[in-house]
Design a protein around this nucleic acid. Structure first.
Lengths: 208, 208
DNA sequence: TTTTGCATTAACAAAATTGTTAAACAAAAT
DNA sequence: ATTTTGTTTAACAATTTTGTTAATGCAAAA
């Protein structure tokens, strides 16, 4: 067995475990299932990661950067003009969430019930306050010039987060409920959502 | 022990169990914990409900009507004029979700991973298709008369659901991230959200 | 080639969780 | 008063899940 094989085996466990944890939550995940699906004995899993908790921690800290981005990117690129910034922010945030659809659900099911476990994530997010203040300033200035409506960034932020994340989490659910004859598939639905969200947010800040 | 006491004890277990299941999910919930918090031996819990599964099923079927309402009420009262219908629908839906904040998270963590367990809920929701078609007709007519923009009800529905549910689920999370010095408490935040959502949706269908 | 160190396996141990039972008990019915 | 019915408790059994260990293999370094 080469070093490469080892890396691959460890990596394989991590990938399988990520899917397992993200879909079933910490409590629902089974180390035996993970081991089985990764094609290793469950003793191997314990050999590499010692405990279920440590395997979990490893996955979370590996995902940390992505989680931060997932929150931050809503606020967009401070260099762009306001409306562009909004469009680009919504769009890139949507894509990021859509590319990692299991993560938001996991955050909701794991972080919310165990906030103490994830304190370090909140700490890291000082960046968000800078972008927040910055965006509020841009908005206030534009509003001063009568270009847009004055709006609260926290409301804007929450709306974008809601409109981007919720449909991605629950697309299946919504389509099953009111999808007509399944002709509208998930990909089309989400593409439509992305445009809808951009349109709604633009309208929200537009002054008439 | 009177019949009343029994009812109370059984009821107490149900109440405690509901909170336990809704916060920790089926896998995270512990029958011992439930029994302990309800002040009964865990044998009692099994005496009344036989298995963890049966206790769970009981809670779900008891909540069934509420779950249906939580989806249906978004579409509002078909008797009212369109804008009123929208305002009233958003408002009552928001209140319903806010009064049962654990339920949406639970639906996301339980229904989405186990759609087969909840097939009967989808079946029940033929009502929603009636309201859906009905609302689309109202909108199309109003749009025909040039009163509002033509919009797709599924988009409208999804937006309202997103804007109402997501902030309620994740208020804590959002406030911790960008809440300034905790001066904005959860109640104020949610009250602001409710107004914001109504305003956004009205703007969405308004024609200029 | 021998040693060294990590990788692997199989069997086992421990802990946590759920589920059962028999016997005691209490209340209501006869 | 006695029977019947349902409730409660304590002890225990079963199962599931996690974690450990000792023996073995195997590849590369010494």
């Amino acid at each position: 067995m080469t070093a490469q094989d080892k890396k691959n085996k460890e990596q394989l466990i991590l990938e399988v475990a990520e899917r397992e944890f993200f879909t079933k939550g910490f409590d629902g995940a089974r180390t035996m299932t993970i081991a089985q699906e990764a094609g290793v004995t469950h003793a191997m899993l314990h050999y590499y990661f010692r405990t279920k908790e440590q395997l979990f921690e490893r996955i979370i800290s590996d995902k940390f950067e992505l989680i931060s981005q997932m929150v931050l990117s809503v606020l967009g690129n401070a260099q762009l003009p306001l409306v562009e910034r909004l469009k680009e922010g919504i769009s890139s945030h949507f894509d990021l969430v859509a590319a990692n659809p299991l993560l938001p659900r996991f955050l909701i099911t794991e972080m919310l019930p165990h906030p103490e476990r994830y304190r370090y994530i909140y700490e890291k997010l000082d960046d968000i306050r800078r972008l927040y203040v910055d965006l509020q300033k841009s908005i206030d200035e534009a509003a001063e010039r009568g270009e847009i409506e004055r709006v609260d960034v926290m409301m804007l932020f929450t709306s974008i987060l809601s409109l981007n994340v919720f449909p991605i989490i629950s697309a299946q659910f919504i389509l099953q409920m009111i999808g007509e004859k399944g002709e509208l598939d998930e990909a089309k639905f989400l593409a439509a959502r992305k445009q809808e969200t951009i349109e709604m947010m633009i309208k929200r800040i537009t002054k008439y």
